[in-house]
Computed example of a mutant assay.
Amino acid sequence: MEYLTDTAPALDRTQISALLELAVDTAQRAGSIAEQSRRRGVDVAATKANDLDIVTRADLDAETLIKETILAQRPEDGFLGEETDEVLGSDGLTWLVDPIDGTVNYLYAEPSYAVSIAAYLGSVPVVGVVYSPALDELWSASHGGGASLNGVGFRTRRSASPAQPLLGTVFDYTPELRGRQLQRLADAAQVIRDVRVSGSTALDLCRVAAGRLDVFCTDSVHWWDVAAGVLIAREAGCRTWARQDPESGRVHCVVSNPAVSEQLVSSLGYAVVPAH
């Protein structure tokens, strides 16, 4: 799958607005569950690839709420979430959901975590919502409708240092891939101002959208991690690239401030960006 941005979804503005309203309301409800659970104490329910890659009870509870809420209202839609079984829809619309993006932050009571919900019609993004209850930030966007933060529309601020961008990234939990990522970061050290690793891909994409980061690069995530954030960044005025590697299944995603040259971004070593 490749993220498509230049094709308009075959939906009218009323339909898109209804989808966005559903996504916002559901994200806020799931975020409330997550934040209440965090304050009571985080319960690790399971691990995935290794002991570093955890699933909390709140991940499962929040995704269950999201899934049941959306499919109760839209039973013909598909659903692809991080923690539960995929549901194949019949109308071409699929919801991509990460109930808690930034689970390690959540485990450590660090506030940079978020609920991420997006709806795609095929490979075309329709709506995206990233909600961080601990930071009180609700990011949202719809295709052709612009991006907003807490209900106020915004555009990406021009980078303060486009020739030396502030870079955000995320590390994989697999030691071999993490080693390659660290080497790539070392190679990029000559052209970037500094690097930030916040632990939440969804929030970092929104930070690029707002101009708090200049570039975000990753090659170790899944569609549910980036589906909402890339639309928010695109609608705010950023350049966005995302595609899935057919062999590994991992998603390569790069989002950049429009003032940073594509040549500089492509020099960072992420194949998803066109070479110059």
Rank of each mutant, 00 (worst) to 15 (best):
Pro165Phe: 02
Pro165Ser: 01
Leu166Met: 07
Leu166Ala: 01
Leu166Thr: 02
Leu166Tyr: 03
Leu167Thr: 01
Leu167Ile: 06
Gly168Tyr: 00
Gly168Gln: 00
Gly168Ser: 02
Gly168Pro: 00
Thr169His: 04
Thr169Glu: 01
Val170Lys: 05
Val170Cys: 13
Val170Leu: 09
Val170Pro: 01
Val170Glu: 05
Phe171Glu: 04
Phe171Trp: 07
Phe171Cys: 01
Phe171Thr: 05
Phe171Leu: 14
Asp172His: 10
Tyr173Pro: 00
Tyr173Arg: 04
Tyr173Phe: 12
Thr174Ile: 13
Thr174Pro: 03
Thr174Ser: 13
Pro175Tyr: 04
Pro175Asp: 11
Pro175Met: 05
Pro175Ser: 08
Glu176His: 12
Glu176Tyr: 14
Glu176Met: 10
Leu177Phe: 10
Leu177Ser: 10
Leu177Tyr: 10
Leu177Asp: 13
Arg178Ile: 03
Arg178Trp: 04
Arg178Ala: 05
Arg178Gln: 08
Arg178Lys: 15
Gly179Phe: 11
Gly179Leu: 10
Gly179Ile: 10
Gly179Ser: 14
Arg180Asn: 11
Gln181Arg: 04
Gln181Tyr: 07
Gln181His: 05
Gln181Ile: 08
Gln181Phe: 04
Leu182Gln: 13
Leu182His: 14
Gln183Phe: 13
Gln183Leu: 12
Gln183Ser: 07
Gln183Arg: 13
Gln183Cys: 02
Gln183Asp: 08
Gln183Pro: 01
Arg184Lys: 10
Arg184Trp: 06
Leu185Gln: 12
Leu185Cys: 09
Leu185Met: 15
Leu185Gly: 09
Leu185Ile: 13
Ala186Leu: 14
Ala186Asp: 09
Ala186Trp: 10
Asp187Glu: 15
Asp187Val: 15
Ala188Ile: 07
Ala188Asp: 08
Ala189Ile: 13
Ala189Trp: 12
Ala189Leu: 15
Ala189Met: 15
Ala189Ser: 15
Gln190Ser: 15
Gln190His: 10
Gln190Asn: 13
Gln190Asp: 14
Gln190Cys: 11
Val191Thr: 14
Ile192Trp: 04
Ile192Phe: 08
Ile192Cys: 06
Ile192His: 06
Arg193Met: 11
Arg193Ala: 14
Asp194Pro: 06
Asp194Tyr: 07
Val195Ile: 10
Val195Cys: 08
Val195Ala: 07
Val195Phe: 03
Arg196Asp: 06
Arg196Phe: 06
Arg196Leu: 08
Val197Asn: 13
Val197Lys: 09
Val197Phe: 10
Ser198Val: 03
Ser198Pro: 00
Ser198Thr: 09
Gly199Ala: 05
Gly199Asp: 02
Gly199Arg: 00
Gly199Leu: 01
Ser200Tyr: 05
Ser200Thr: 09
Ser200Ile: 05
Thr201Cys: 03
Thr201Tyr: 01
Thr201Trp: 02
Thr201Ile: 11
Ala202Ile: 00
Ala202His: 02
Ala202Met: 03
Leu203Ser: 00
Leu203Val: 00
Leu203Phe: 00
Leu203Trp: 00
Leu203Gly: 00
Leu203Lys: 00
Asp204Ser: 11
Asp204Trp: 02
